[in-house]
Amino acid sequence: MTATRPVPAPDFVGYPEVRRGIRALLEARPGSGHRPVPACPEWTVTDLLEHLTGIAERVLARHGGTPPPAPDEPLGVPALLDRWDDVGAEVDRRLAAAGGASGEIMVMDAYTHELDLRAALGVPPPAEHAAWAPSFALLVRGFSGSLAGHGLRPLLLRTTGGSTWTAGTGRPTASVTASAYDLYRALAGRRSVGQLAGMAWSEAPGPWLPAFTWGPFAPPVRPGG
């Protein structure tokens, strides 16, 4: 990738910030556990937290830790936040001890879901976040692989703030420009085909649109937040 690149940092940097951000959002909005999360159509806020906690437990086990026993009954939002914090703090310690050479997918997933939650609650994205740069870089790498898999030319990703990344291999001759937030959401499967096509492209976007379906991501049927 060619880009305005952040200084390399351990992959897990930003994970505690995600946990703090989600806790602050939900503690300020008690009773929101049953609220739907449109970016994850089958999930409520509680389901989203269960997912995040489960991912943290699997990462902890993979790094030699012992997750807490499964609860006897479904947990509500406050208990899930506490459980995620407890497991997440141990994950932080183990990843730090391992030199920070793991955890990038977990961080990207958690940060993406923080943005999902903010959209569901009508809260704007944070102006700055420690998880943004490493998560965006991971998404660009995945999208680059999708471009290659589809036999497509490389694409210059440009934010309205002037930062650039090259997705794919070689010198790009085409570009797409959008806000940093919209580019992130596009790469993470949170922008519909219509929204993708409506970004500022240097040429007709049709050939590149199939590449936005990759890994676990695909453009939603309805416009995303």
Rank of each mutant, 00 (worst) to 15 (best):
R58V: 03
R58A: 04
R58P: 00
R58W: 00
V59P: 06
V59M: 11
V59G: 03
L60E: 01
L60G: 02
A61W: 06
A61Y: 09
A61P: 07
R62A: 15
R62L: 12
H63K: 07
H63E: 12
H63G: 08
G64P: 03
G65L: 08
T66S: 14
P67M: 09
P67S: 09
P68F: 12
P69R: 06
A70S: 11
A70W: 02
P74E: 01
P74A: 01
P74Q: 00
L75Q: 09
L75T: 00
G76V: 00
G76D: 10
G76H: 02
G76N: 02
V77E: 02
V77I: 04
V77Q: 00
V77W: 02
P78Y: 04
A79N: 03
A79Q: 11
L80K: 08
L80A: 05
L81E: 04
L81R: 05
D82Q: 13
R83A: 11
R83K: 12
W84D: 13
D85G: 11
D85E: 12
D86T: 15
D86P: 10
V87W: 07
V87T: 15
G88D: 06
G88Y: 06
G88Q: 08
G88K: 06
A89W: 08
A89N: 11
E90K: 09
V91H: 07
V91Y: 06
D92C: 14
D92H: 14
D92T: 14
R93N: 00
R94V: 03
R94F: 01
L95H: 10
L95S: 05
L95K: 04
L95Y: 08
A96Y: 00
A96C: 01
A97Q: 06
A97E: 10
A97D: 08
A98W: 07
A98P: 08
G99A: 05
G99F: 05
G100C: 03
G100R: 03
G100Q: 02
G100P: 03
A101L: 14
A101N: 13
A101K: 14
A101Q: 14
S102G: 13
